[in-house]
Design a binder for these strands. Sequence first.
DNA 1: ATATTGCATGATTGG
DNA 2: CAATCATGCAATATA
Length: 783
Amino acid sequence: MFEVKTGSKVCMNASCGSTSTVEWKKGWPLRSGSLADLCFRCGSAYETSLFCETFHLEQSGWRDCYLCNKRLHCGCIASKLMVEFMDYGGVGCTSCTNCHQLNLNKRGENPVVFSRLAMNSPHTNGESGISIRSEADLFSQPLVNGDDKREEFMAHRGFANFMKPDNNTNNNNAGEMHEPSQPSLNVALATLPYSPSFANPVGGNKLMAAASQSHSHIGQCSASSILQKPSKSVPGTPPGTSKSAQARIGRPPVEGRGKGHLLPRYWPKYTDKELQQISGNLNLNIVPLFEKTLSASDAGRIGRLVLPKACAEAYFPPISQSEGIPLKIQDVRGKEWTFQFRFWPNNNSRMYVLEGVTPCIQSMMLQAGDTVTFSRVDPGGKLIMGARKAAYTVDMQGCGLTNGTSNEDTSSSGVTENPTSINASSQIPEELKGVPEHLSSPYGVGSSLKKSEMNGGRICDDPSRVKDKKRTRTIGAKNKRLLLRSEEVRVTWEEAQELLRPSPNAKPTVVVVEDHEFEEFDEPPVFGKRTILTSKPSGEQERWASCDDCTKWRRLPVDALLPAKWTCSDNVWDVNRCSCSAPEESLKDLENVLRAGKEYKKRRIQAAKTEEEPSGLDALASAASAAVLGDALGGDSEVATTTRHPRHRVGCSCIVCIQPPSGKGRHKPTCGCTVCSTVKRRFKTLMMRRKKKQLERDEIAAAAEAYEEHNNKEATERGETDENNGEKEGRIDLNSDPYNREDVEAEKEDTKGRECSGVADEVLGLTELGGEAASCEELKAAT
DNA sequence: ATATTGCATGATTGG
DNA sequence: CAATCATGCAATATA
């Protein structure tokens, strides 16, 4: 039932300090991208997101109920339930019993929002009751006492009270008990497709009014209550993904010029809290206009940000000339940027772009997948540009790519804020100074968590998920390139798991639930030191670690687990080398260690990319990238860099690019690595194609007897040509179609570009199909 | 040789 | 199926 992982995680951001209060329980179902993608305390959204799943801390003590404004406190039932049952979502505030909001997301593909609201709650517009949005979720079926393992588990965990709302001592609102007999989880299963509060679309003006007034009645009029119900689940703004009042929900923006309605994907998405705070703290209205998730080209060096046409035409000044106009937009720091707002004719339409955005994008430290928001200050109409960082998420199940491109915001920055920038900012304009410095919303964090992270991979079969996947494919595939670099320098989630150790003094309490042993630790986990495992030729394994003081490598027992800081003096296993003054191991042994370390890094890159890129070609591209990058990760590459033809770019999956760095030697015929298997597969495909074509030709030949002789002759000649090309020898360039003259020509050009600078060696070194390695002369001759 | 610009193309998506 | 938009790419400009 539960995915048994190693344990909880802590924020690795040294300045965060959120480690001490993190509850550590081995066996919890943990996954990246869950409820707490970012550390809400330090606001580390992107780089540390993988380590900030401080569930317990996050859910308890720091989140305000949006109705009663009370803070959840550590140890409350809700928070524990939230933690324990991440798979199923969580509950809202238990401080007030007016608001129990569940967001159940067990399978992810069908996020559910349960709301149990007071009879007189403004959320219900006077309609009492419970709303549920979803079709198929475990919790979308009534939970009957005693018939569900969940109850057993929760009861075991001491949540029986929660399971039985009637026992809730703080039940002061009869109205909420829409269905008194409803047994558990306080969820009455009305089948309303949407909460009534979501059901009535309202115009933008109303949004404005609500936003501007909300500060005066926080808790009475949540911004969500004036949300328009999206017509469909929208990536990034699926209504069901809202975790709470702080869910990031797309709001139809104010009406602009033009008629076309804005696609929900461009709806500005702010949490209620953000809206409330922003509106409440400012004396002026910030009107969210739209937002856009940066594509690779938006964030690239080209400096052009493609604007959604409808947005550009609705909210930016009208332009008639293609050259457009300079447009001043202020960022959160108060810096005013001037972009060229222009368009290109495109088909019979226009394509709007902001030119010259690179400095701004860089200044905000944005990259593809992040979101830029555009707002307007009213009155005055000044344009404000904000940003929200995307979360990096890892699809632990390898089910599909999860990229940070949709709206896995981890660092919400309100309308115009980027936490990092605003925190660092000392020049916030007067008009923006009222904006809370840090509007990171713990719930916003997980509110749109990627579905695949939530369901353990089961969603692969789900059509909606497939569609979702499809929808994000473009940007995902492109963003992978961009994510790559950050990936290289980051410890992956799984690796972090490996590094987690129970606190040295912690004694686990073992409980068994549903045949799963849960080790519970009172102490938070600690990060251990990374070690390297090597194998001797004899097969015997050794573990190595480098001293934090002298950096010398020391041999350790295989099962050694080191604390984060480890020095020679801690080397209790080797009395001869328990001091930094002791010499290092023999050079030969150390070489093994270093090699193992490099291979480890390489595996990391490849594994990470393979995980992200399930398709064969993409996997190839990953391998290619790794090969191209070599061991640059560690900066200690011993691979000579060669100049490749520009055609061989990162992501290229051609035979050249999928090589390991040169000098690594030829792969063995039995090698089953990605590259070799791909080469084999390609070769096989190629040969099949050839065979097929040959068959076709033969048929034609048979039908046209008059040409038979001619054809046979041609085939013979072709065979010779192939031989000349070395294919018969197995030296194939699998990028080229032997029957495609253009391809051949292109390859010739390509070969020229390579100038035999080692790349050719790589090609041939790799191709285990190939017998002899061709010399540069041979290749030149081929051109 | 590299960067920039303007346009074209094609994948994706909403209606 | 048409609109949209991400991105490729050729032409042009600049270093």
